[in-house]
Design a protein around this nucleic acid. Structure first.
Lengths: 121, 121
DNA sequence: CGGAATCCAAGATGATACTG
DNA sequence: CAGTATCATCTTGGATTCCG
């Protein structure tokens, strides 16, 4: 007797236990979304990213970068010099995901007028 | 002297004060993503949705539905009968957004194998 | 059935100070 | 520069109870 959860044929975010949901949460986290978008135009250093993403704290930026690196979306490159020099890039997979995230954000930006009007009504 | 923040020419999620970021947070919230995906195949009732989205509590489902309705992504229709009968649908704008969200989720589901392998390494 | 209200636990986030 | 450690806070989320 086969157990579908063991075979795990097809990931499904609607299923409570599916690991895809955890990854999705990383990507759609408050700062994860913005980091992916900010990295779309190429390599960035830590403080550069921090300036680019309005309102993010050092702590949350570092944490978000670490999580997204663990998932394989971000490539971290540290040059052993002083003062430290660390660069962040999207991996190929990261670029794919970033495109989707960016499309979503753009969609919201494009319709923001309508959305805000709806809320007022 | 023009104030760009007042003119608000172009919404930008990377800007701390931009209202688009608030909306983006609603859409990418833990349950918001899943509600939008679950509603893609048409009308659903409350308890139906609750069963479909693994792990969501009544409280969070109700709250998420309300927020997404306020943003104009979801249409709520209550029939004045007893017992109560309430239906939820995506609005046209909601469908647009749901497509982007679904594309993102599908992208993660498709690459889940690679992602999990990366994490183990 | 479809919620709203309350209470409480857990996790996310931030400010600050410190370090290699 | 690029973080980490610590502590305080603020938000999220869940369980339960009650209601039209």
């Amino acid at each position: 007797m086969s157990d579908i959860s063991l075979i795990d044929r097809k990931p499904d975010v609607l299923s409570e236990k599916c690991p895809s949901r955890r990854v999705l949460n990383h990507v759609t986290s408050r700062w994860g979304v913005l980091v992916l978008i900010a990295l779309q135009d190429g390599t960035h250093r830590f403080s550069n990213l921090r300036r680019r993403i309005g309102g993010v704290s050092e702590r949350m930026l570092a944490q978000t970068l670490r999580v997204l690196e663990e998932d394989g979306f971000i490539q971290r490159t540290a040059y052993p010099v002083v003062p430290p020099h660390v660069e962040y890039d999207l991996t190929p997979l990261g670029q794919t995901v970033a495109e989707k995230v960016h499309a979503l954000a753009a969609c919201i930006e494009d319709n923001l007028g309508q959305i805000l009007a709806t809320q007022d009504a």
